[in-house]
Amino acid sequence: MQNGISIYPGLDNTLSENLALIETAAALGLPRLFTSLHIPETDPDALKRELGVLLKAACAHHMEIISDVSPATLTLLGLKEFNLSAFRMLGITTLRLDDGFTCEDIARLSHNSQHIRLQLNASTMTGRLLQKLVDAKTDFSSIDALHNFYPRTGTGLSEETLARKTAMLHKAGIRVGAFLPSLAGRRRSPLRDGLPTLEDHRAMPTSLAARHLVALGIDSVFLADALPTDEELRCLASLEDNQVVLAADLLTRDAAQKHLLTQTFTARIDEARDAVRAQESRRLLQGNIAPEHTAERPCGAVTIDNSGYGRYMGELEIIKNGQPADSRVNVAAQVKESDRFLIDYISPGRRFSLFFPA
């Protein structure tokens, strides 16, 4: 996945803190950097002093630099006109066009000779605006989209809105990103209430919120706050693209079952009422499975059929509706309570996997 961090020169962090953040992100393989050049609280003098240094450091690691811009950006940077070459000289490779740009402006800029990519505001995009961009002969080959973040508590998007807007953009062939807040790191001023796209994520652990966005079909995830922790950055770097990943508790001691639980699976197309069935698990099985922990199967139980089930041995399921104990079925793991809601996103044909936090 093409995930990234956010940098705000002239706000909360010192120059050295921002440079260290870039170095850590680059070392973890996070290839994108988002910055905003029209935040009212920004110290313009500090911005002008630090911006070039920070973008040079990001360029040295070949990071894609995305800048949120509006007409206010000209004042902040001391520019007389909106000139793409000025942004290119700074090292900015993608412009996220916020308020103040018409569909005609976007269409014209999409054909620029500076090879600067454009990014649409996914949260405010509508079918009508998308059609206007098509009618204006926009070149969509160099365009993706990124949802807003929402500093004020209670103003973040609903899941339904994010899913609807994202699906609309995907239908047009446009990849979509979204933001996560930092829960344990330094939150951005002035409110310091976190910068989520989804309101549900404002107080949610970063790993779970990130995996939720991927389950919702988001293509790239950005940590939006000023100074996330190293652990939050590692969570972002380890995200798996286009699959539902569930945290679980390991219950088995058997080597064959442990090996099977490390695999990535595909949910069967013929969806069962009571469980998510893995399409490949019997084929991936290595060895024999004896009966072990053949207990009651609550919602979230991860089960593997043992030798008592004959040719079904190795069948892996995640239980959706609780089932009684069966001597032919081992309960090998249990999806953590915090993650059980993610089971609903494992639709027929969707990839899924498990991991077992220490």
Rank of each mutant, 00 (worst) to 15 (best):
H147N: 00
P291F: 10
R202F: 09
M313D: 06
D249R: 14
S207W: 07
I106D: 09
P9D: 05
V221T: 08
L239P: 12
H62W: 02
Q323S: 05
L146P: 00
L227Y: 03
E292P: 04
T24N: 12
S182F: 07
T14K: 10
L30M: 08
L133D: 03
S6L: 01
A167K: 11
S207G: 13
I343A: 07
A295D: 12
I66S: 07
L216G: 00
G194F: 06
T303F: 06
S207M: 13
D230I: 09
L76E: 13
T35C: 14
R117N: 15
G310M: 05
E23T: 13
L316R: 04
L191S: 10
L97G: 09
D200N: 13
G300N: 00
A25L: 02
Y345C: 08
M125A: 09
C235F: 15
D200W: 08
Q323T: 04
D12F: 00
A26V: 11
G29D: 05
C299M: 13
R188Q: 13
T252M: 03
D305M: 12
Q334R: 11
G300Y: 10
L246K: 00
S70L: 06
E23A: 15
M313K: 13
L30V: 15
F265A: 00
P190V: 12
N306L: 09
L316C: 10
E231K: 14
N321P: 01
R32P: 02
Q131D: 14
E160P: 01
L130N: 13
G300S: 03
L51R: 02
P71Q: 10
T93L: 05
A57L: 02
P40T: 10
G300R: 01
G91E: 06
H111D: 13
L146K: 04
E160M: 05
G4S: 06
S123L: 06
F82Q: 04
A301M: 11
F356P: 07
L51V: 03
L120M: 08
V331F: 11
I7Q: 01
Y309M: 10
M168S: 11
I143H: 08
A210Y: 06
T153A: 15
I66E: 06
S281C: 09
L213Q: 14
T252P: 06
A26L: 10
E296R: 12
L285R: 01
R311P: 06
E160L: 07
